[in-house]
Simulated scan of single mutants.
Amino acid sequence: MTEHPAFYERISEDRFSPTEHTRGPWDAGSQHAGPPAALLGRAVEERPGARPGMRLARVTYEIVRPVPIRPLEVTTAVLRSGRGVEIVEAALTPEGGTPVMYARALRVRTLTEPGPAVSEGPRVAAPGETPETPFLDVPWDVGYHTSMDSRFTEGTFRERGPGTCWMRMRMPLVAGEAIRPLDRVLVAADSGNGISNVLDFERHVFVNADLTVHLHRHPAGEWVCVEARTSVDPAGIGLADARLHDEKGPIGRSAQSLFVAPR
């Protein structure tokens, strides 16, 4: 293990070893989906031959099965390359296994000269001096819950209902490599269902099988805010919908389809 904490250690150009900091709250052997989402997003942006002057505008993840805490291979393929947009697919596969997570990203060509800017809506209260918010009770000492700085300005992890939470990575995504703006968004965006949980964590499972993130701009600064709301149907299907912010204002939206069931 590296001397300095990180979510992953790079084994080779396209292979990564997850650390205990990726561990999610549901199972000791599985990752929270935030770190692998960021790893796939980085692969889309860093793949060999990536076109300059393009920026990720939307990415949709299909979480086929829990992502295990064992070495993973990342692969990418360009599905469409047009003048103004391109579609790139990425997959995450454990050694000796089948893909556990897919990402399909839309990248859009940016303007060479600044165009018009239109505000999406009001800013949320900045993290400021807000104290760190305790996470849900998790039966292991180290994991995603200890690797993110979380500060609520509305709700808490332990309250039911809507929540607004500022999140900041305590460590790099990949050991020895700089944190990128996209890392910050994608590591945090998958937390919407936990931030706005509407069910008793000890009596219900409410895990997401997908995640879609739309960005009209990349974040500035270290903090990303997830302003989330969750709705659940009696049939056991839910939706966690969130507005995403940085300290300058709105940056986009995220949505998660939820599988809801009694424990």
Rank of each mutant, 00 (worst) to 15 (best):
E3K: 06
R10Q: 15
E13G: 11
E13R: 06
H21G: 00
D27S: 09
G29Q: 14
S30N: 10
Q31K: 01
P35I: 03
A38C: 09
A38L: 08
A43S: 14
E45D: 14
R47W: 03
A50R: 08
M54N: 08
A57R: 07
R58N: 12
R58I: 07
R65G: 14
P71R: 01
R80Y: 13
G96M: 03
P99I: 03
V100E: 05
Y102R: 11
L111A: 14
P116E: 13
R123C: 13
E132Y: 02
P134K: 05
L136R: 07
D137I: 03
P139G: 09
D141A: 15
H145F: 10
D149C: 00
R151D: 11
L173Q: 11
L182C: 10
L182D: 11
V185A: 07
V185W: 06
V187N: 03
S191P: 06
S191Q: 11
L199F: 07
F201W: 12
V205G: 10
V207P: 12
T212A: 13
V213Q: 02
V213H: 02
H214C: 09
H216T: 09
W223Y: 11
E227I: 00
E227N: 13
A235R: 10
L239M: 14
A240S: 15
A240Q: 13
L244F: 08
L244W: 08
I251S: 07
S254R: 00
A255I: 07
F259P: 00
